[in-house]
Design a protein around this nucleic acid. Structure first.
Ligand SMILES: [Zn+2]
Ligand SMILES: [Zn+2]
Ligand SMILES: [Zn+2]
Ligand SMILES: [Zn+2]
Lengths: 129, 129
DNA sequence: ATTTTACTTGACCTTTACGTAAGAGATATG
DNA sequence: CATATCTCTTACGTAAAGGTCAAGTAAAAT
């Protein structure tokens, strides 16, 4: 049994409902930073690592792309791992996202209108036959 | 000069604001059917071809994927090229799309709500410091 | 000690709708 | 005829976010 609090990749993935590939991928693109390793090379994740990963997943849920997160990460203090140091940059990004979402909603609404119209015209054609 | 009404690919693309690659691609995946060719192999498109292409672009505008169009195309009478033979299948697909769009709108709306909430919580943290 | 999991890196696969050469042939114009 | 401009096919590249092997190690359990 592990007496340290550190967790291996499989366990962590299971906990968060993602795959190990995902975690390695986030590390690969620099979102996660290199974790500590055991003697043999096995990754172990500490509490901060886990918090960071959860934070990433939260942002993803909010529709923020990994790319955007990378830009965002540049504004985190790299040496402090706590997220009390969230800068106004995050607010900025969230605001930008709110307006993007608004825009998408507007586009979809007018798309919906168009589809309905088109549908009606086709129904007319069918009925007049 | 061409005294026939048939048009070559470059001209057609320019007219419709797409690229020649797009037209060849639609043919490649079977959306467009092989056009007539000149002696040397150059494609020429007649009125019906053009109508069909415009129809495809219209559906694309409505958010219907090429894949869906292929399924749709299976329900067209392959030998008749007129679009009076639009079957109820198109209506079906449009209806499906309307509900998909509705779903997307709903998702985006709740996403927006979440983002705003999250933003507020962060603002709180920043202000209490 | 040995089997059974778990983990490692690397590399190729997936989807969608084309973009972008490369190299060769065709068409239009001077 | 020469030249410029199309057009042809073939085939690899692209973005996003991982999925899916494969071959080789390490850790955990028996
Ligand atoms: Zn974004
Ligand atoms: Zn209307
Ligand atoms: Zn669809
Ligand atoms: Zn709320």
């Amino acid at each position: 049994m592990n007496d340290k609090k550190n967790v291996q990749i499989g366990e962590l993935a299971k906990r968060l409902g993602i795959t190990t590939r995902t975690i390695r991928y986030y590390e690969e693109i620099g979102l996660m930073g290199p974790p500590e390793r055991l003697g043999g090379g096995t990754r172990t994740f500490n509490k901060d690592d886990i918090l960071r990963l959860k934070f990433i997943l939260k942002l993803k849920e909010l529709g923020i792309s990994l790319n955007e997160m990378q830009e965002l990460a540049e504004h985190f203090d790299i040496h402090k791992q706590d997220f009390d140091t969230i800068t106004p940059k995050l607010i900025e990004i969230l605001d930008l996202h709110i307006s993007k979402v608004d825009e998408k909603i507007a586009n979809l609404s007018s798309l919906r209108h168009e589809i309905v119209d088109y549908r009606l015209r086709i129904m007319d054609i069918l009925n007049k036959k």
